[in-house]
């Protein structure tokens, strides 16, 4: 047989072995922290990773940069099967180059099959950079993750045009590792199970010659959110006389803050003196068109309805099951707003 032909056959065989992605195992979650706390999207990713892992027959590995043992334990309580902790002092505060080097080296050695990053400040910068470094790609801002079991690939849902619909995209089977960034709030938080126990492995990182190239001058932790005019607001939480007293109205303000929305009121709330007249929704007040309108303790007389009928999604909380607002609401809750609102704030995890 011709020797060239034989070599060609052997060459081909090698390529096939590479394409199977052998050696790429487990689902990795890159933990993101703000100071000494894990940011919520990290916990949400652990939740989703657990579900994928049981379908895939894989472990959930978490990697924590610059944190400590106690924070690594938290990752285990929330669902990690093992935590790789890089506690090098150079990783205490986020800087792109050392973080990318630490993760790049770790992933090159451990060969993860799937890697999840949070689509927050840090994950959004790091994930595409690492994807390029590892010769792969990343699908960003995912709000849904499922598996195509037949070809063992991730199927990702990404919001299109701000969520009008979603694009569903799968990785090609030859892509390893499959990397995604996960949009905060897309998945629920897992149960914190203090009975879970697992190993924390401290990993040394080689940061020789790696210098941060971006110098942080100062950080402003919180900016006062500028109030958005009601007619342009995306989320409005509105109070009516049914909130009972100023204390009840304060709950409405709290819910609006938790949702990042604006506070408004019906004529009743204005008459009670809880809110200024320019925040009144309805006839004689403002007409609003938010994506979400939550009416709390508002009966929904026609004068009010005319001011909010163009809201895309209406939620009403009212004690009176015959209140007209419940007939126009997309979701109606019959109950005491003073009990329901704190429960909603709790459920939002804020």
């Amino acid at each position: 047989m011709d020797l060239d032909y034989l070599q060609m056959l052997m060459g081909e065989e090698e390529v096939v072995v590479e394409e199977k992605g052998e050696g790429y195992r487990n689902i990795w979650v890159v933990a993101e922290r703000a100071g000494d706390e894990l940011v919520p999207v990290t916990l949400e990713m652990l939740n989703q990773a657990r579900q994928l892992a049981s379908t895939l027959g894989a472990y959930v590995m978490a990697v924590l940069l610059g944190g400590d043992e106690a924070l690594a334990q938290e990752l285990i309580y929330y669902g990690a099967d093992k935590v790789f902790l890089c506690d090098d002092p150079a990783l205490k505060d986020y800087a792109l180059e050392p973080y990318a080097k630490a993760l790049g080296d770790l992933f090159a050695e451990k060969m993860p099959e799937i890697v999840l990053f949070g689509a927050a400040d840090v994950g959004s910068e790091l994930a595409p950079r690492l994807a390029r470094r590892l010769g792969t790609i990343v699908l960003t801002n995912c709000t849904g993750l499922t598996l195509d079991a037949a070809q063992r690939t991730l199927v990702c849902t990404m919001p299109a045009y701000g969520g009008e619909y979603s694009e569903v995209v799968a990785f090609s089977p030859e892509v390893h590792p499959q990397m995604v960034t996960v949009r905060p709030g897309a998945f629920g938080r897992p149960y914190r199970d203090e009975y879970r126990s697992a190993e924390v492995e401290t990993v040394a990182v080689d940061l020789d010659g790696v210098q941060p190239r971006v110098k942080v001058l100062n950080v402003v932790a919180q900016v006062e959110r500028e109030p958005v005019p009601l007619d342009k607001a995306r989320i409005i939480v509105s109070a009516g006389r049914g909130m009972g007293d100023a204390e009840g109205f304060a709950l409405v303000e709290k819910l609006a803050a938790a949702l990042g929305g604006e506070v408004a009121g019906s004529r009743g709330a204005v008459d009670e003196g809880w809110i200024d007249e320019e925040k009144q929704v309805g006839m004689g007040g403002v007409t609003v068109r938010p994506d979400l309108y939550i009416a709390c303790g508002i009966s929904g007389a026609i004068q009010h309805y005319l001011g909010m009928e163009e809201a895309k999604f209406v939620v009403a909380v009212n004690a009176d099951e015959n209140a007209p607002i419940l007939k126009v609401a997309d979701v109606g809750i019959v109950g005491d707003a003073k009990e329901v609102i704190p429960a909603i704030i709790e459920a939002l995890g804020a």
Partner: peptide, 26 residues
Amino acid sequence: LTQGRGRAFPPERTLGERLTGSPQDV
């Protein structure tokens, strides 16, 4: 490096759904 798998749409708007149960459940 990716395969399109179509589109997904949000659930259709349903009017007047009532939620019942404890405050935590609703």
